[in-house]
């Protein structure tokens, strides 16, 4: 996962970069808030950012505020680096949209755990966004039959929006993803098919008896 860091102190910045690299992350390094915001505002920006609260040009809290004002399908996970005594900064930072904070000087194990918690949260968000995208795509393909259908009382043809009468299977096939396989229900078999078969049989028998008489 690509992680952005914004830290004005060169030693702390390099040490943080080395730690994140060691933990297997690709790091985008910035040295103040304005530079961080310039990266985070772009498409394809890192989804996790570690921001120092106190920086020249623009502090981490202002970066959080700007990031939250920009709607995204997956909202970046923001961790603030605060002074151990800076409770005011923590409150302001969380109110501005930070997800978490780590007090400096930080314990590497604590930072790693918080980064991992952030990555887990992002993983859930990314999965959720993907599911929503898939559902939206599926919904766009679903055809629904809604409203009042004018249907012929005798032949059961349906009148469409262009005032054409269509057979039921043709109309439904056009307005849904349904496909038809033709068969005969027991009632129709009894009322329609069986009488036709009987009639055919009767005709066949009378033809055969006519042939025998002529012999």
């Amino acid at each position: 996962m690509r992680i952005l860091i914004a830290e004005d102190d060169a030693v702390s910045r390099r040490a943080l970069e080395a730690k994140l690299n060691r933990w297997g992350h690709e790091v985008t390094v910035t040295s103040d808030g304005a530079e961080a915001w310039d990266v985070l505002r772009r498409d394809g920006a890192p989804l996790l950012a570690i921001l120092d609260v106190e920086m020249p040009c623009m502090g981490g809290i202002e970066v959080c505020r700007r990031v939250r004002e920009t709607p995204r399908s997956v909202s970046p996970y923001l961790i603030l680096l605060t002074a151990r005594s800076g409770k005011e900064g923590v409150v302001l930072g969380l109110e501005a949209g930070a997800n978490d904070y780590v007090a400096k000087p930080f314990d590497p194990a604590e930072l790693r755990a918080r980064v991992n918690a952030g990555l887990q949260m992002l993983g859930l968000q990314i999965n959720l966004a993907e599911r929503v995208r898939e559902l939206e795509e599926a919904l766009s393909q679903v055809k629904q039959l809604q409203g009042l259908l004018p249907i012929c009382s005798y032949c059961k043809s349906i009148r469409d929006d262009s005032n054409y009468w269509q057979r039921v299977e043709s109309y439904i096939g056009k307005h849904s993803d349904v496909q038809f396989s033709h068969s005969i229900c027991p009632d129709c078999y009894e009322q329609v098919v069986q009488p036709q078969l009987d009639e055919m049989k009767r005709k066949q028998e009378s033809e055969q008896s006519g042939v025998r008489l002529s012999d």
Binding site: A10, V11, R14, A15, A18
Partner: peptide, 24 residues
């Protein structure tokens, strides 16, 4: 402690950090 973070083939991280500190 920073020795554990040393990446293979990269300049010595501790020297780099010391230089940054002494410069800053």
């Amino acid at each position: 402690g920073f020795a554990a973070l040393q990446a293979e083939g990269e300049p010595d991280l501790i020297v780099e950090l010391i230089d940054l500190y002494l410069e800053d």
